[in-house]
Design a protein around this nucleic acid. Structure first.
Lengths: 233, 233
DNA sequence: GGCGTCCAGTGATTGAGATCACACATAACT
DNA sequence: AGTTATGTGTGATCTCAATCACTGGACGCC
């Protein structure tokens, strides 16, 4: 909402961060073909198996990327955050979206149509390189994900990995060992490929061993080292 | 081998297929900075965790992509074939290689140094787009892989998926249901995340149920439909 | 030939985690 | 208040696949 009418520069900054350190001329051109929108929690940007419409750049908020099994079970690939590009692989390769993207929080997202993406890439090597670097980040995250998921023997290890990973990401906040976890046990289970009950049990175990504490929706990791020792066991 | 001395166009074709449908001028420039080599079975192109040197384009042969757990266990991400680019994500994003690439057969591989890749991408949008499309293929394959691995409940289902997937790829050959499987049970286990013994037992089970037959190193799928019914169970 | 090494096959045992079946806590709506 | 959802906490049971511990076959090599 425009509750601060004296701040158009703010908006400009946001737009600039959308396109990183690209040259000003290119940024201006991109602004004419891109469209920034607000999405409420739960809004679906695109769905698994649908033909690609374009690329989505997250300006603000968290977006859940998931795939569905035929039996209804769900696997959450990862939670993407601001600065990431979604749907790049499908858009560039003209392949159906491989995952479903759903706003996990209220989000600001910039959209660029497929035809524009391809045209701009062909014309501006700089833009093409930029897109490719975003895609490469995405790719690397996904590979990490697989390693974490597949190469951890026990569910305990997977959960420990997930929690420690979260700490590393969010250490931006004030206290390094506190974090808000906006996910249900069900969703955590979908991230590490276990059942909801197992997550509950593991969390209870961690709490009993004084590795973590919960204060409402806030998770406090009181013994990070112990969690790290569970990894690679 | 040059057993057919009257066919230099053949060699030219090979070089062209290396760079797809790129414009002739661009292909010529790429040829001056690329280096095509032969690798024997078992040769390692690059290793997980090493800094990126450049991009590898498979001209001929199969390359195994795998990641290693700290405890020594191995997960085979996939077997890449001709026409695929390896190390693109790491090269473009300047991130360590996420996997180890090893020749599964004698291979012909074209290499382009990282600095050249980045320079060419910046200058030629066409080249950048081409690289990105290769990366996008890679990305999509990898996503499929995760789905297959994680969203299949039983090991039986995963193996069935793998076998059917192989049939779809290799239907290029004469008989649609026959294929040479150049992998040991151990390796198959590493592909679907199960132990060697389980693979042996499952194969035995399939054979007992007359879903498949083995003639030496050749696998004959005698009842493809039955295998497909195991999927999504 | 004999000898190592790699690979496939099979049984017996075991355990981690899925699944089912609940009770209980919030929060949210009206 | 009450009344649905939606999420959490736990016990009892059962199943699939890992693991251990072998045997036997195939190939190469000295």
């Amino acid at each position: 909402m425009a509750t601060q009418p004296i701040k158009p520069p703010q908006k400009l900054n946001a737009a600039q961060s959308a396109f990183g350190e690209l040259s000003p001329a290119l940024v201006r051109e991109l602004e004419t073909i891109s469209l920034t929108n607000h999405y409420p929690t739960g809004a679906v940007l695109f769905s698994e198996g649908h033909p690609p419409r374009g690329i989505y750049l997250i300006q603000r908020g968290l977006v859940k990327l998931s795939v569905c099994a035929s039996d209804g079970r769900t696997l959450i690939l990862r939670i993407a955050r601001d600065g990431e590009a979604l749907g790049a692989a499908s858009t560039v390769g003209s392949r159906d979206y491989e995952a479903t993207a759903e706003a996990q929080q209220p989000c600001d997202i910039t959209f660029i149509r497929q035809s524009d993406v391809l045209r701009m890439m062909r014309v501006h090597g700089e833009f093409a390189l930029w897109i490719t670097q975003l895609l490469s980040r995405d790719y690397n995250f996904t590979c990490r994900e697989i390693r974490t998921l597949m190469l951890s023997g026990s569910a305990t290890e997977k959960l420990a990995r997930l929690l420690v990973g979260w700490l590393d990401e969010r250490h931006v906040t004030h206290n390094p060992d506190r974090m808000k976890v906006p996910l249900t046990h069900e969703e955590i289970g979908q991230m590490i490929g276990t059942s909801r009950e197992t997550v509950t049990r593991l969390m209870a175990g961690f709490r009993k061993q004084r590795f973590i504490e919960t204060e409402g929706a806030t998770l406090v990791v009181s013994n990070r080292v112990a969690l790290e020792n569970l990894i690679t066991a």
